[in-house]
Design a protein around this nucleic acid. Structure first.
Length: 552
RNA sequence: GCCCCUGUAGCUCAGGGGAUAGAGCGCCGGCCUCCGAAGCCGGAUGCGAGGGUUCAAGUCCCUCCAGGGGCGCCA
């Protein structure tokens, strides 16, 4: 049981006991929250329960605090419980407990910090960029967010499944095929024009050249439609290969690359459409098939099947979500989309109802757009319009770890400017390196210890009683709370902040406490502490999908 | 016009209704005879505006202002 929960229970019992003695009037117990005080002198945990009880009982908050404390049975690892103005109860954990955690961390290794929040099957779908061009920084942001969330949810006990939805069907593909074929013809010296709604980016020229190198004029030798289809297929394969490589460099892995086409091949698309029809959620008008979402609270109806008979992206997304929840039985699904898909959210929620599913089980995280710039100049990232700076180029310039850290440091809700000029300039004194430097420093100390053949297995952790040592331990044990927070709120941006704070207290400890010194007992105890710090720091970095370097 | 997100230090951003609002960068000043100075220690400036709810509001509600995004038989 977490400390927090234990303290809440303790307070609840104290309240009940006091009430039985007639000391709390007829007040009912309000919700007990246990906070982390902002200041160290306020202890490790605090509750504002007396303030909440003040009006209910008509008593003074400080009197309530005193009364509750008198009726509390002090939990084993708590050293001190004190009332504090204007009406708090502060708890300080014992040094013995803190010392013991060093041994616990060393024993549990990178499993330290795990919590048991749930065990459900959770699917996280993210990135899912069209296979019609390279990923841009916006995708990178979603990728980092999704993969970090996956790591954290696993640490919280969930069965996590990561997935990339490959849009290998639909009208965008046709535009891509046409554009590529045109570039291919141009590469072979023929006149050709890119369709107006096509892809004009330079990468299409490179792609066409690459295909010419391998296949020569093969696709001109076949009937036009077949040539376009064949070259399109190869183009998609090449682009998907690039995307997979980009994500690998960024440290992002998927359990599955789910093909949109497979929904049609397997019959699940038709099955889902039939369900909607049977549920009377469908209307035929203007030659098209509509989902009547406006009758269920959405702003408007949405087209499922166009008048030319082709299904919309929305229609296959319905089938896809049916597949996630019903065919594959995920308990919860998290979709991470860019802000440009925001209009899609409300209709997907309506879809959940129409399919007889609980909308609460589908969480859609909208991550706001990334504006890429070099100094004052804004760099366009639209695939269709032309010039783009890909995620790959950004990673080449600033490094994958730095990319991850920067993307993670901002909540999904806030837009971000990614200034390449600044990112490169600051790369030397970036918070990323501050955190990694702490890890490298630790590795260096442990290396020195190994060279001196120091065996600190039996180090006596009870010797760790100075403020810098205890502050470090306090910070280390917080990791489980951070994991809990991130797993609950689905906001991974807490991790980089925690990482920095942990690095700070370590650097400060290092400055004040000589580790390898003449006192053999103290040396062993501190080596153990340093080892524990390394474990927690590495774990934090790994949760963020970053490397924990031994030297840099 | 309607919907979503954002407005906190010079800049980039944190802040689960609680105690004196924090961090990084930048700026100023100290610290290497000693385990990595990519480090440590110290210093200045701030919640867009106005109402409301609450014992308590940067945090919740309303209005307004400003910026971004969305409102296709695109995805």
């Amino acid at each position: 049981m977490s400390f927090r929960k234990q303290l809440a229970d303790t307070l609840e019992k104290a309240f009940i006991k006091a009430k039985e003695k007639g000391l709390m009037g007829d007040a009912n117990l309000p919700e007990i929250t246990i906070e982390r005080p902002a200041k160290p002198e306020h202890g490790d945990f605090a509750s504002s329960l007396p303030l909440k009880l003040a009006r209910l009982t008509g008593m003074k908050p400080m009197d309530i605090a005193e009364t509750l404390i008198q009726n509390i049975s002090v939990p084993k690892d708590v050293e001190k419980i004190t009332p504090a103005k204007p009406g708090f109860i502060n708890f300080t954990v014992s040094k013995e407990w803190l010392n013991k955690q060093v041994d616990v961390i060393c024993k549990e290794g990178e499993a330290y910090g795990n919590v048991k929040l749930g065990s459900q099957k959770v699917q996280i779908e993210f990135v899912s960029g069209n296979p019609t061009g390279p990923l841009h920084v916006g995708h990178g942001r979603g990728a980092v967010l999704g993969s970090t969330l996956a790591h954290v949810l696993k640490a919280a006990g969930y069965k996590v499944f990561t997935e990339y939805y490959v849009n290998d069907a639909g009208s965008q593909l046709e535009a891509f095929h046409q554009s590529l074929f045109a570039r291919y013809q141009q590469a072979l010296g023929k006149e050709a024009e890119i369709p107006g709604n096509g892809y004009h980016g330079n990468y299409m020229v490179d792609l066409a050249k690459k295909i010419v190198e391998t296949y020569k004029d093969k696709f001109l030798q076949m009937p036009l439609q077949k040539g376009i289809a064949e070259i399109g297929k190869i183009g998609i394969e090449i682009v998907m290969g690039m995307i997979k490589e980009d994500l690998k460099i960024l440290g992002v892995e998927f359990n599955e690359w789910f093909s949109e086409q497979s929904l049609f091949k397997s019959g699940q698309f038709d099955k889902t459409m039939k369900m909607l029809k049977d549920g009377k959620y469908i209307a035929e008008r203007e030659n098209a098939t509509w989902f009547t979402s406006s009758t269920m609270g959405d702003d408007r109806d949405n087209v499922l099947i166009r008048s030319d008979g082709t299904p919309t992206y929305f229609a296959s997304d319905i089938a896809y979500h049916y597949n996630k929840f019903v065919a594959r039985k995920f308990d919860n699904v998290i979709d991470i989309w860019g802000a440009d898909h925001q209009g899609h959210v409300s209709r997907m929620k309506v879809v959940m109802n129409a399919l007889g599913l609980d909308p609460e089980k589908l969480e859609i995280i909208i991550c706001q757009l990334v504006t890429l710039r070099r100094g004052q100049e804004v760099v366009k990232i639209s695939k269709r319009s032309g010039d783009i700076i890909s995620l790959r180029e950004v990673m080449d310039e600033v490094g994958a770890d730095a990319c991850r850290f920067v993307f993670l440091s901002r909540s999904a809700d806030s837009q971000m400017d990614f200034d390449l000029e600044l990112a490169i300039k600051q790369s030397a004194d970036n918070p990323v390196y501050y955190v990694q430097y702490a890890h490298a420093r630790i590795a260096s100390i442990l290396k020195n210890a190994a060279e001196k053949c120091l065996d600190y297995e039996g180090g006596r952790v009870t010797l760790l009683t100075s403020e810098p040592e205890l502050t470090l331990i306090r910070q280390m044990v917080r990791i489980s709370e951070v994991i809990e927070t991130v797993a609950t709120t689905h906001e991974p941006h807490h991790l980089p902040f925690y990482a920095q704070e942990l690095a700070t207290v370590f650097h400060s400890f290092y400055k004040q406490c000589r580790v390898i010194a003449d006192d053999a007992d103290m040396t062993c105890a501190r080596l153990k502490l340093v080892k524990a710090a390394q474990i927690v720091l590495a774990r934090t970095l790994h949760l963020m999908g970053m490397t924990a370097p031994d030297s840099m």
